[in-house]
Design a protein around this nucleic acid. Structure first.
Lengths: 213, 213
DNA sequence: TGCTGTGAAGTGCTTCACAGCG
DNA sequence: CGCTGTGAAGCACTTCACAGCA
């Protein structure tokens, strides 16, 4: 039986793993696996079986005791709980190399995360068409955000302009920010910022590589 | 006085924060800040002051009591402890859109993480020159890895080919893998894999956005 | 005096172990 | 009988509080 979510607090670590479960479950769908129990799923994700069961239990009861979980309906349950089973409209600030690379990365769109407006403060870039979108002046952000129903802002500016970009986004009422700029930004408590830094991973690899163990 | 590292175990969480400290400290250098104490550094990184002091203490004693830390020498101390103050030679497998985007992303090279050889299993791509590098057949990986002194492998294949790419890397003696493919890979204990998934961040944003609080 | 470095206390996540159900 | 869902125990990281040094 499928029961609705427990109202309790979901740990941040769980949210991150749920994203992994979806990724792995989608690969199981591709291999025509219909039912999976917690232990093999856990192994495929590199975590403990209890962990998987506890994580899923936060969202409700989707398992069948003695059997396991239906792969497809589990994906649906997780994506629905996370709120990623719908379209999210996003604005991108900073149309440099990185910004262009993200625009070309079709996966975002395929998952319902659509970049629908792009901005830059460089007058030479404004008006240019990149990947089918016109580059707007950052000053017009507020109007376009409300016109277009944008809920997430992506910062791909150089580090020294990241704070100003964040300010523009907040002024436009955006509370969810994905920051690719290599700088921390100061925001009030209620604003949610996720930092993407390619070097964190490389630093981990380098550190572990040189460790003698 | 600067003392050498404590030999004790460094938590994984600390390693991740150290990368953040470097990023923030570099921005302080840009602003000509020469000395910083733990609390302002902590605030800029969004963590607790004790946390910063404890993290830094894992590496040794670089602080001056009553004063703080020298920004430049602190950066040097952290990067040296992490092992990121030298060149790292890397191989990339999977020369598709994502692979090409990484090759064009100059920051890797600027930090000493050099992609020095690229591979693909598509015969149409082999021999092509991308960003100044010839695309090699994945079968030649082992020879090129030892010739070129490559220590890190980057996987940018589609998910269904990620496991095979990982196998090729391991056969070539690589123990550090950065996986951009949306799939988990099975590896022995001693292999270190870091997973890069753009959607983890978006999933977090989406989840928090829809939460009522 | 001010800030670092660190034992001790606190917190939250992970794992265990098993009751409960299909 | 097997696997889920979950209280309890265990563990690791975080924060506190203050001794110790410049």
């Amino acid at each position: 039986m499928i029961t609705p979510p427990k109202s309790s607090h979901i740990p941040r670590a769980t949210i991150q793993r749920l994203a992994t479960y979806v990724q792995v479950l989608e690969n199981f769908v591709r291999d025509n696996v219909e039912v999976i129990s917690s232990n093999p799923l856990a192994e495929a994700c590199g975590v403990n079986g209890s962990q998987v069961r506890k994580d899923l239990a936060y969202l409700g009861e989707f398992g069948i005791r003695g059997v396991g979980y239906q792969v497809k309906s589990l994906i649906a349950a997780i994506t629905s709980s996370l709120g990623v089973d719908r379209e999210w409209r996003m604005a991108l600030i900073g149309v440099g190399n990185l910004g262009k690379a993200l625009l070309n990365h079709g996966e975002f769109r395929a998952r319902g995360f659509n970049i629908v407006a792009i901005f830059d403060c460089d007058p030479f870039k404004i008006g240019e068409i990149v990947h089918g979108l016109e580059v707007h002046c950052t000053r017009d952000l507020k109007d376009i955000v409300s016109e277009q129903g944008i809920e997430i802002g992506i910062i791909t500016t150089p580090p020294e302009r990241a704070q100003r970009a964040a300010q523009h986004l907040m002024d436009a009422g955006i509370t969810s920010i994905l920051n690719y700029a290599p700088a921390r930004i100061k925001v009030p408590e209620r604003i949610h910022v996720e930092y993407v830094d390619f070097f964190h991973y490389l630093y981990s690899l380098a550190f572990n590589h040189q460790q003698p163990r």
